[in-house]
Computed example of a mutant assay.
Amino acid sequence: MITRLRSLYLECVTAALLTATALGLTLHPLSADEASKRVVAVGGSVTEVVFALKEEYRLVARDSTSVHPQEAHDLPDIGYIRALSPEGVLSVDPDLLLMLDGSGPQETVDVLEKSGIAIANVPNEFTPEGIVAKIRTVGSALGVPEKADALAQKIEADLKTAQEQAAGRNDNVRVLFVLSTRGGRIMAGGADTAADGIITLAGAKNAVSEFSGYKQLSDEAILSAMPDIVLMMDREGDHSASADDLFSHPALAQTPAGKANRLLKMPGDYLLGFGPRTADAIQDLAQNLSEIRS
């Protein structure tokens, strides 16, 4: 019933927009000055950038991945970044959407694009350059490019320092990032992921960089990867695992990480966010990797 009502809602919204177009009522995104008083931030790092720019007073909502800083919790939650609904987004009457690349589903994005609300698509590359581009994109959309430029320069310098300090500390350390162990199956992060990006910036080596994205590993792939350390997000539920649980896996138990019981956990939004706090995350990860092997 709920699915049917949602479908009817989407059909009505789309029909109304098409009718407006047929009548010559072209819908244009508002300018930055006009469309920046009721802002919705989608993506934890996007919300962090808005706060870092000290423009948080314009936020009227955020998505469920936006958990930092603590003040963000006071904002209405419109849902998970990849499971947004038009109803949830439109319910807060926004005039600007800051949407991190990968927001969805596409069905929702299509409706929002036709609604006339200004949308800024924020890039999400897992590099220092990607973080700078993210800051500048958000700043431009909010109409504060000068503030964004100042923040970008500071963050760029912090990232450079963090990389310099991490250099040489974890050469040849093979790190396996495990996203999930649900059902006893190991889901790991390969190339072109936030996990791969942060491991590389911390001066270590991703143990499974032969594929892109997140994939389940066979026992043979785990043994071939031979990780020295397993890295996970510190969280609860089905995606969590203790060191005892993790290394009871027959293949992982035979790796250097398993034999030495080396499991490192860090908060996911901090570790993988690629935003204003990433320089600190690089330094913390590099130090933790170095200490756990000593």
Rank of each mutant, 00 (worst) to 15 (best):
A167Y: 03
T161F: 10
A166V: 05
F126V: 08
P145L: 14
V138H: 09
Q153Y: 06
T108Y: 09
K160F: 10
K154I: 08
I119K: 00
V138A: 13
I117Y: 02
L151T: 02
E146M: 08
N170A: 09
V132G: 10
G139F: 14
K154A: 12
T127K: 14
A118C: 08
A157Y: 15
K134A: 06
T161G: 02
G116E: 11
P128W: 00
V109M: 15
N124S: 15
T137Y: 04
V111E: 08
R136V: 00
N172G: 01
K147A: 15
V132R: 15
R169H: 07
N121I: 08
G116F: 11
V122Q: 00
A133W: 12
I117L: 05
D149V: 08
V109D: 06
V111D: 03
E113H: 11
P145V: 14
I131T: 13
V109A: 05
P145K: 12
A141Q: 01
L142R: 05
I117S: 04
S140K: 09
D158E: 11
A166H: 05
V132I: 09
L142C: 04
S115W: 10
G168M: 00
E125V: 08
I155R: 00
A150L: 11
D171R: 12
V111C: 06
A120E: 05
A152Q: 02
V109I: 14
A162P: 02
T108N: 06
E113M: 14
A167M: 11
A157I: 05
I155K: 03
